[in-house]
Structures are given as C-alpha cells and as structure tokens.
Design a protein around this nucleic acid. Structure first.
Length: 179
DNA sequence: ACTAATCTGATCATACCCTGTATGATCAGCGCATTAGT
C-alpha cells in the first residue's frame, strides 16, 4: 500500500477540501463575531467554532480571511453607505496592535519533519487526501500540515530567487565594484 | 454568481541559542490575488 506508483493521471491528485456549507444561523454568528472583531485570536475562533459552528477552527480562520478581503472592497466603494455598522469602524491602530493571541507554535519532531520533507519532495502541492493522510501519519492536525507546506513552498521560492545562478551574481558583483 | 479553498510573498512571533537564525502563524491580495464547487 505504500507504493501507489501511478505516474500519470495526477489530475485528480490535488483535490481540494470539500466546500464547507454554512447554514444561515452559522453565518449570522460569524458575521456578528466579525463585526465585534474582524481579527479574532485563536481562542476566540475556537470558541466560536466549538460553541456555535462545530466544524474546524481552520475553516473559521479561512472564513474570516475571505470576509476581510471582501469587506475591505465594500468599504472603499461605498464608504458612508454603511452607517448602521459604524460601531465596527472604530478599530483604532492600537486595537489592531493588541490583537488576541495566536495559536501556539507547533513544534515538529525530527521524524515528523522527515516525513513531511519526504512528502514535499514527492509533491509540494498535496491535495486534501494526501494532507490528511500525512496528518494522520504524524499525528498533527491537517491544517498545520497545510501551513507547513505553504511555508515550505514560499521559502523554497525565496531561496531560488536569491541564488538564480552564480555566474550572473558574480558578474553583477564585478560591475558593482567597477562603480 | 457567489464564495470556500488555495496560492504567493511579506511580516509577525517564538524556540533555540547567544542577539541572530530558522521556521510556525497570520496577513493581504489594489484599477481590488486566483481557482473552482454549488
């Protein structure tokens, strides 16, 4: 079972997570919470989820991210239309700075990292199935696995940019010295 | 069409170690990120 070497047909490999469908009641709760604080901390998101929504904290986080993206559009296009909700406009910079606590930093054991790195080399864009399988294998929530892959890819790209090829950078250094 | 899921790249924050580096968490996205399920 370890080897599923179907080299082609990778089309369905990167499957997305199935789309979450929030009920009207759940949306009401989320929107209300958003008005109270569009940047809830981990504890708040967990509370909202466990008490009212009962899905997964990471889904709540994504909902807030998407909502913020859309909400800012609206604000710019119609700034004074929204007078009813003027309550939520008084988010001063101080308030944003005193944001609630983040999730605790996850620390991975070397064997967990080994598994993740191996998977990354195999496929840096794993779909939901692969991520869940990995999560189960190393005993860490799937949402953390997803973040790990995001960070890994991002840093991989950055590193590649920094060292495109040595010849170019050497030439550039020479030119700089001439100046 | 609407919006959840996903992506990159930048930045904040913390563990580990020696004040910097590696990396997990969070954020925006700008003539308003893109992709894709319902």
């Amino acid at each position: 079972m370890a080897q599923d070497n179907s080299p082609n047909k990778t089309i369905t490999m990167n499957q997305r997570r199935s789309r979450t469908k929030f009920t009207e009641d759940q949306l009401k709760i989320l929107i209300k919470a958003f008005h109270q604080n569009p940047y809830p901390g981990y504890a708040t998101k967990q509370r909202i989820n466990s008490v009212e929504i009962n899905t997964d904290e990471s889904r709540i986080q994504i909902w807030f991210q998407n909502r913020r993206a859309r909400h800012q559009c609206q604000k710019k296009s119609e700034p004074d239309e929204d007078l009813e909700s003027s309550q939520d406009q008084d988010h001063s910079e101080e308030e944003i700075q005193s944001r609630e606590d983040r999730r605790c930093r996850t620390s991975y054991t070397s064997s967990q990292l080994h598994t993740l790195i191996k998977a990354f080399m195999n496929n840096p864009y794993p779909g939901i199935d692969t991520r869940e399988q990995l999560a189960k294998e190393i005993g860490i929530p799937e949402s953390r696995v997803q973040i790990w892959f995001q960070n890994r890819r991002s840093r991989f790209h950055v590193q590649r940019k920094r060292e495109p090829d040595d010849q170019d950078s050497e030439q550039r250094q020479d030119q700089e010295q001439d100046l």
